[in-house]
Design a protein around this nucleic acid. Structure first.
Length: 840
DNA sequence: AGCACGCCGACT
DNA sequence: GTCGGCGTGCTC
């Protein structure tokens, strides 16, 4: 360091000698953090939580998050400099940093993976490599360029920059690096990385009348007189005034969106002239994408006695510092209680997180919250664009939004002082993330987060998960029951339609029992609406050749292709592979191909034939892809434009319709017999939830369940709405077979493209696990129902570990260490292995 | 995860 | 001889 620098600082001379280092979390699946050197200029404001741009590897540039700042220089490598710091105020707070590392540890993944899931991609800058001509290049005679090099240079004459893909296209080859390397060596081109800030604030143009006319009435009158002979301009003025309100004292705003004026048909050129003459002014302002137009309205109505009692019990639980499990049957009015609690939490100056499953979020609940909380409500949802997510993130960070209604990923938002977390539909399995890591459960994560913030937690559901209910019985949670329906709605009646006998008597019409058809017809005659539930999308799960029994399968997954009639394609629901429908059997050439099984599309199709007069709408993943498709379908149903709604389980949640008198369930048997220890729990929840859609108003609704075994014990419990009976029966099973909630489970998934290598790896791994943990705690390896996806074979190993007396932490460390040892073996190095802690 | 390097087989 | 394939190892 030079003498000059030391002298230039006249305070804390010693400080200038200190070099700071920052540990940076990089959003990639690598363990640990990476240490970078902090440039002198950043020392003052770089703190944990700041986003920084760093180079990682030879050329890649990432946005990372600083997790710690310290003075320990790394011993074995030279730390690179941080390229840039993107924040003067950290984007991520200390709570979140703690959350990230807890999640990585608990769910056995890397912090980088947590960060990747948690940070909206709008806050992550990506880099792309470009080349450009080197302006400093001076031609010398001894430099010659090859044909390929000249092609690139020619292309650079017309475009000032080329991406790697461009270069590859120009040359028509893929191996472009050696060529580029040469050109760089010769000094003819430069390679650079362009970093782009992806978040773009939304702008709009507004028009404001000049102050002098707004302030003084006579000036305005004079202006009117002036514009007398210019009708187009006068029109602009009138339209403007009508927008802001003619009465000067009542005005809340003086600006009008330019788009509003142009849409009202004013002349663009007249407006331009007015602006030029400084009568009007045009400004560009940055606006929020978040809709804040709806104002608050007063509370909807007083709580019932039962609700008030529940409310005070909930408060009791909060005071005891326990999460509260609110077991409230469908229609018991949980939402009113939530609203009351949210109000209290916000009034006391805290923030509230209201977690909902994806599909329940676009519904009436949000509209109600919006009515009560107005612009204080932020919504965080997968169909929101990235820019919208960034805005919510920032507003939560700044404390402008104090209530977030969101899906599981909203646990990552930068709450400063969380006061209350509500987890609605607590039992929903969609709170657990499946595929990319972190495979986290938003409910469990939220409970941990609440503990960190010292916030209250309320779990609400009509059908508690076994885990939560057991927690309540153990006294870990405070149980509050609300088992009476609020208002006039009453429990639906059930009717079981026996598929087997109808089939024997040849009375089935397609997949409809005569009972169901009959009830649908009656309901339609009474001008009531019908919901049909078939938990499988597409037309038909597979095609089969009548002559040789050949079934078209996916090339890269071990599943049959689903037939989609509308698009006339065969689709793989696991990898998305699409194929044309074969006219003849690929195996034997026969034309006798028929469909087997039923999807939502087939039900819709059959209904159109059976009931040609009815208006039918299908609701599943395929019809709700776009942002508003879901809402549109719901709206049409609510307005009575649709008579029958056919859908997958997405219509089982959070929807209240007044005029639905009949709900039909098609594949009860398949739900119950799903090969999984949770299938009974899921069946109970699903059927109860779907049934809740029937008979919300004055009449009792009817639920028709088509089944082959109407005497089933579980079905009887569902019909009686006997949650406690179900719980007692099921918990016994779980206890005697060492399943959750008594044991913790960790699923280990191994994938490899060679089946026998995979087998060997899985066997070897299981052997080491058994040696360390004992045979009883290790299950498998077993091939899952779908044994191959995207050309990778799959094996699963399950660990069952007692909750009491065993350190799960130690087990995780062991399991992880053994997996590293396994992957270190030469023959297994392309093995993919990941963990799923608390799988659902 | 990327990305480079390096070794190998398949073609102009 | 290239071209393009993949296996291997590293990234502060």
């Amino acid at each position: 360091m030079s003498q000059l620098e030391i002298n230039s600082s006249n305070e804390e001379d010693q400080q200038d000698f200190v070099t700071y280092f920052a540990d940076v979390i990089i959003p990639i699946p690598l363990p640990g953090t990476y240490t970078y050197r902090v440039p002198r200029a950043m020392q003052d404001y770089l703190v944990p939580g700041c986003r920084v741009i760093v180079q990682f590897g030879r050329k890649k540039i990432y946005t990372g998050i600083v997790s710690a700042v310290h003075t320990h220089a790394p011993k074995v490598y030279e730390a690179k400099l941080i390229i840039e710091c993107l924040d003067t105020n950290p984007s991520v707070n200390d709570y979140q940093l703690k959350l990230f590392s807890w999640m990585a540890e608990y769910y056995m993944c890397t912090v980088g993976e947590v960060l990747n899931a948690g940070l909206p991609s709008g806050l992550k800058l990506n880099s792309e490599s470009f080349i450009q001509l080197n302006p400093d290049f001076t031609s010398t005679d001894d430099v010659v360029f090859s044909d390929q090099e000249n092609k690139i240079l020619d292309a650079l004459e017309t475009n000032d920059r080329l991406s790697y893909e461009d270069v590859a296209a120009v040359l028509g080859i893929k191996m472009i690096h050696p060529v580029l390397k040469d050109l760089i060596q010769k000094g003819r081109i430069l390679l650079y990385e362009q970093v782009k800030d992806k978040y773009k604030p939304k702008r709009k143009r507004i028009i404001v009348l000049d102050d002098k006319y707004l302030d003084a009435e006579q000036e305005l009158q004079a202006l009117f007189a002036d514009l007398e002979k210019r009708p187009k301009q006068l029109d602009v003025l009138l339209k403007y005034l009508s927008q802001i309100g003619m009465d000067g004292n009542q005005r809340s705003t003086v600006s009008v969106d330019k788009s509003v004026l142009t849409e009202a048909g004013v002349s663009a050129s007249a407006l331009k002239t007015l602006c030029k003459n400084e009568i009007f002014h045009e400004h560009e302002v940055i606006v929020s994408r978040l809709d804040s137009s709806v104002g608050r309205s007063s509370h909807e109505g007083a709580l019932s006695e039962g609700q008030l009692a529940a409310l005070s019990e909930i408060t009791e639980g909060f005071q005891a510092n326990k999460p509260v499990l609110l077991h409230g049957v469908t229609g018991s009015g949980k939402t009113e209680i939530y609203i009351e609690l949210i109000k209290q939490a916000i009034e006391s100056g805290g923030q509230v997180l209201y977690l909902l499953p994806e599909i329940a979020l676009t519904t009436q609940i949000v509209a109600r919250l919006h009515k009560v909380f107005g612009s204080e409500l932020g919504i965080y949802h997968s169909k929101y664009s990235d820019n919208e997510r960034v805005e919510i993130w920032n507003q939560v960070n700044e404390g402008k939004v104090n209530l977030v209604a969101g899906v599981r990923s909203s646990v990552f938002l930068p709450f400063q002082e969380l006061n209350l977390i509500i987890i609605d539909e607590e039992h929903e399995s969609s709170f657990k993330q499946y595929d990319p890591a972190p495979r986290y459960h938003a409910r469990d994560t939220a409970i941990w987060l609440a503990n960190l913030h010292q916030a209250n937690v309320l779990l609400g559901t009509a059908t508690p998960s076994l885990d939560s209910y057991q927690n309540a019985l153990d006294g870990k949670y405070h149980l509050v029951e609300l088992l009476e329906r609020f208002g006039s709605g009453s429990l639906p009646k059930f009717k079981l339609a026996n598929i087997l006998t109808s089939r024997k008597n040849k009375r089935m019409q397609g997949d409809f029992t005569p009972e169901l058809i009959d009830e649908i017809t009656q309901a339609l005659e009474r001008k009531e609406q019908v919901i049909l539930f078939q938990n499988r999308r597409g037309y038909s799960p597979y095609l089969i050749c009548n002559d040789c029994n050949h079934v078209p399968k996916c090339q890269s997954c071990d599943v049959s292709l689903t037939y989609h009639m509308h698009s006339n394609h065969l689709v793989c629901h696991y990898c998305g592979f699409k194929d044309a429908v074969p006219a003849t059997c690929e195996a034997c050439g026969s034309t006798a191909i028929r469909t087997v099984g039923v999807g939502t599309e087939k039900i819709e199709e059959d209904l159109k034939i059976l009931l040609p007069e009815a208006h039918i709408q299908r609701m599943d993943q395929d019809t709700t892809r776009s942002k508003y498709a879901y809402q549109n379908i719901i709206d049409r149903f609510e307005n009575g434009e649709t008579d029958i709604l056919v859908g997958t389980q997405m219509l089982s949640k959070g929807l209240d319709f007044d005029n639905v008198s009949l709900v039909g369930v098609f594949d009860y048997d398949r739900i119950v017999h799903f090969p999984d220890f949770r299938s009974h729990e899921r069946a109970f929840q699903l059927i109860t939830q779907v049934s809740g859609r029937a008979g919300r108003k004055d009449d009792k609704g009817l639920v028709v369940i088509q089944t082959g075994e109407p005497e089933g014990g579980l079905l009887q419990l569902i019909l009686r709405g006997d949650y406690k009976g179900f719980f007692q029966q099921e918990i016994l099973e779980r206890s005697s077979f060492n399943y959750p909630p008594f044991y913790r489970m960790i699923k280990i998934v191994l994938k490899h493209k060679e089946q026998h290598v995979l087998q060997q790896a899985a066997m070897a791994y299981v052997a080491t696990l058994m040696a360390e943990l004992g045979k009883k705690r290790v299950l498998g390896p077993q091939t899952p129902v779908i044994g191959r996806i995207r050309n990778l074979y799959i094996e699963e190993v399950f660990l069952k570990v007692e909750k009491k007396g065993v350190s799960i932490q130690k087990v995780k460390e062991l399991v992880y260490r053994l997996s590293i040892d396994l992957k270190k073996k030469k023959e297994f190095n392309s093995l993919r292995l990941y963990f799923d802690v608390d799988p659902v």
